[in-house]
Structure formats: C-alpha cells, structure tokens
Simulated scan of single mutants.
Amino acid sequence: MSANKVSLTFTIGGELEINRMGYGGMQLTGTGVWGDPANRDNAKEVLQAAVKAGVNFFDTADSYGPHTNEVLIEEAIGQYYHKVDNSIGKKIVIATKGGLTRPAPGQWGPNGDPAYIRKCIEGSLQRLKVDQIDLWQLHRVDPAFPIEDTLAPVAEAVAQGKIKYVGLSETDVPHIERAQKVVPIVSVQNLYNLGNRNWEPVLDYTAQNDIAFIPWFPLASGPDKMQDKIKIALAWLLQRSSNILLIPGTSSIQHLHENIKATEIHLSEEDFASLSN
C-alpha cells in the first residue's frame, strides 16, 4: 500500500486511457434492479452530467433491468461514445457484463452456457448500438460450466472484432489464470471497499499483472452506509492501488459531483495507514 501522489488515469489493455473515477449504472433501474428508474429523464441527466464532469468510463450489464440500463445509457450518452473525436476530447469507454439471468426483481442466477453467453454478447451490441464492445465482463463464473467453455464464444467475439477487451467479475486468482489461457483478461470486478477487503489477494494479483481492479459497492452498498465518509472512502481506494477504477453509482447529480470531488483528496501517510488498519 502507498499514499504517494495518485495518478487519476489508468490505461486498460495498454490502449484505452480512462479517468479512474468512473460511473456504475446499476442504480439507474427500478426496485430490485428491475425495469427503468422511476424518473428516467433524471437518470439521463445524471449520465450526461457525468460525461460533462469528465467521467469517461461507464459500467453497466445486460442484467440491469434486465436490458433497460444498456438502452438508457445509449439514449443518454450514445452521442458521445459513438464518436472518438467528440466534444469532451476523450473516448467514452462503455463496459458491460453478461452471464446472469434475472427471473424476477432482486433475483440473480449465473448461466455460463456458451450459447447463452453468445446471446448476451449479441444483445449488448444491439442495445448499446455499437459494432464493438469496449470491455465485456463475465458477470459470474457458473460452476455448472468450465470457465474455458463459457469463455469460448467470448474469444470468438474478440477474434471477430465484436469485443475489444475482456474482464471477469467476482472471481479468484485460479479462475483468472484459467481464463487467461482462453482470452486476455484486462479487468476484474469484485466486491471491495474500505470495510470489506476479502478480495485483497485478488487486488494484489491484478496490480502485479497490470489488470484493472474495479470494486463494486465501493461505498459499502451505497452512500447511505457511509454518508459522512463518502469522499474519504473513495480517496482511500484511489490511493490503495493505482489499478483501481471506481464506479460509484448514484441517481443524484449532487452526489455525482460529491463523488468526483474525492479525486481532489489526498490522504496523508498517517491517515492512509490509520484507515488501512
């Protein structure tokens, strides 16, 4: 761990330079991550405000809604990410995920069937209205299928130019190493925050191998859980490791800007060490 000067950018796959303060779209859905948010216009305004504030990394998934979140993102900020040379001067990177089923609100189940994964990829391409997904992530490893089989259609999609880079979510080092033999892995998205560091060995592994680490629930399940410590929690993550990319989600433009201000905070060696203990 280090509390030296923090770089605020990270380059995914050695090519896609992104600002480390990104945005996660899961909260822009209805109750139980089901359907559209109650105020869809507000949700689009939040996404547009994020772009204007300098966010150029957006994380979503086909299971958010399901499907509605990808559609919302395309409608709100497609005008920016469909063009490399755009008004903000930096490519907008869209990361999505596939490999979960949604039988009902609040219910999730892994499906690593290669045929299902192929459908996930094609669906995300259509909803995001892109020819190539910047970063496609396997949402969960399904124990019913070897990860090599699950990722076979993903490797095919990379070869066909439908996916640029590939990541995994909620996984361990052995699965990362197995996956790497099928297709290069450039990111891992696991539960991790100031209060929950169970995946610390995976974070260290990704840092050593120049793989992006994307903590989900970086604020311990949302701003309400750390209301007075949001910026400190995010600043700690930024200083914890230079490969950490943050994707705090919010349906409030005010909270969006508060999250982004965490990039202006630099913890002292003493404060960083105190929080880390």
Rank of each mutant, 00 (worst) to 15 (best):
M1D: 11
S2Q: 09
L8D: 13
L8E: 12
T9I: 10
T9L: 04
L16I: 10
N19H: 15
R20V: 08
R20D: 06
M21E: 05
G22A: 08
Y23P: 00
Y23H: 08
G24E: 02
G25K: 06
G25W: 10
M26L: 13
T29A: 12
G30N: 05
G30H: 05
G30C: 06
T31A: 14
G32E: 13
V33L: 03
N39P: 02
R40I: 13
R40W: 08
D41L: 14
L47W: 04
V51S: 02
V51W: 03
V55S: 05
D62I: 10
S63A: 15
G65A: 09
P66L: 06
I73F: 04
I73P: 00
I73W: 00
E75S: 07
E75Y: 10
G78K: 03
Y80M: 06
V84R: 07
N86C: 00
S87I: 05
I88C: 09
I92Y: 04
I92D: 02
V93R: 01
I94A: 06
T96S: 07
L100F: 08
T101V: 12
P103Q: 10
P105I: 12
N111M: 12
D113S: 09
A115S: 11
I117T: 07
I117E: 02
G123Y: 08
S124C: 11
S124W: 11
L125K: 00
Q126D: 11
K129T: 06
D131Q: 14
D131V: 13
Q132G: 04
I133L: 10
I133K: 00
R140D: 05
D142A: 08
A144T: 14
D149Y: 15
P153V: 10
A159P: 00
A159D: 13
G161W: 10
G161R: 09
K162H: 06
K164A: 05
V166K: 04
P174C: 10
H175D: 15
V182H: 12
I185Q: 05
V186M: 07
S187N: 11
N190H: 07
L191Y: 15
Y192W: 14
Y192K: 07
G195W: 13
N196R: 14
N198Y: 15
V202L: 01
L203E: 01
N209F: 11
I211D: 02
A212M: 04
F213D: 00
P215K: 07
W216L: 06
F217P: 01
P218W: 09
A220C: 13
G222C: 03
P223L: 13
I232D: 07
I232L: 06
L237H: 11
S241M: 03
S242T: 15
N243W: 06
I244S: 03
I244P: 02
L245W: 05
L246A: 12
I247N: 02
I247A: 04
I247P: 02
T250H: 06
I253L: 08
E258Y: 07
N259R: 02
I260T: 07
A262K: 00
T263G: 04
I265D: 02
H266M: 13
L267R: 06
L267Y: 07
S268I: 08
E270F: 10
E270N: 12
D271F: 08
D271H: 11
A273M: 09
S276M: 11
